[in-house]
Design a protein around this nucleic acid. Structure first.
Lengths: 114, 114
DNA sequence: CCACATACTGACAATTTTGTATGATACTAA
DNA sequence: TTAGTATCATACAAAATTGTCAGTATGTGG
């Protein structure tokens, strides 16, 4: 595995690079929810328990900067912003699905969910 | 996604559970190397650049505790320890492969590797 | 005039993860 | 007698991630 640099950061392998884009506590949950519908900020927030405004905003911004989602702001008051997944973002869905299924399998083995 | 508890820790979804077992900087690189051969501690260390003794040891111990790898100690001096992947651990390989391929695709899109 | 709504921003703090540095062991070779 | 080896352990520090809290903007409904 040759190491490489991207945006100033050093990566050791492709897995690390992938996880830096879609990993962390919130990015996959967000992408998963946007996979087949457009959602407003407040909808996403209501749908993901425990997420704070700060986390939701920063993660949405990073996903947007990396081209996974699109952000459309309506100039109204109170504000209205819609988030949708991009073609680039859709490519991550099968990977999330794979990880999710694996997680469910691990949970079953561990006796979680009865 | 109903949240749940395991070993005292709170998880929000299956992805988080999966990533807690095989995520982090070093676990997938370790499992990936053990996927088709038995390796000694020092071999793994030589094969994974930048990993420190502390990280290698703690990650190996956690992977062992979670049943992903097996540890065989030979009572000789200097010490000799062999690590091998278990059947349980082998189930993680396709997932790592999926993430790895996705990472390579992202890298290509980003223009990494010429 | 005042509260309410939505989508944020920023300062700061706590937590989690990763890294560094040093030492232990106990036999073998020089 | 001393250095070298392989596999750790442990104390401590730094870095990265996540969380808390307060505040902002601007119109609408009461």
């Amino acid at each position: 595995m040759p190491e490489f640099r991207y945006n100033g950061k050093l990566y050791y392998n492709p897995v690390e690079f992938a996880m830096d884009r879609i990993g962390g506590t919130w990015k996959m949950p967000i992408l998963w929810r946007l996979k087949d519908r457009v959602m407003r900020y407040s909808e996403i927030k209501r749908d993901i328990p425990h997420i704070s405004d700060k986390m939701l905003t920063t993660q949405l911004r990073e996903l947007e900067a990396d081209g996974f989602i699109h952000r459309k702001v309506y100039p109204v008051v109170p504000p209205k912003t819609e988030y949708s997944i991009t073609d680039h973002g859709k490519k991550a869905i099968p990977i999330i699905d794979t990880i999710r299924s694996y997680g469910l399998a691990l949970m079953e083995e561990a006796g979680i969910g009865h």
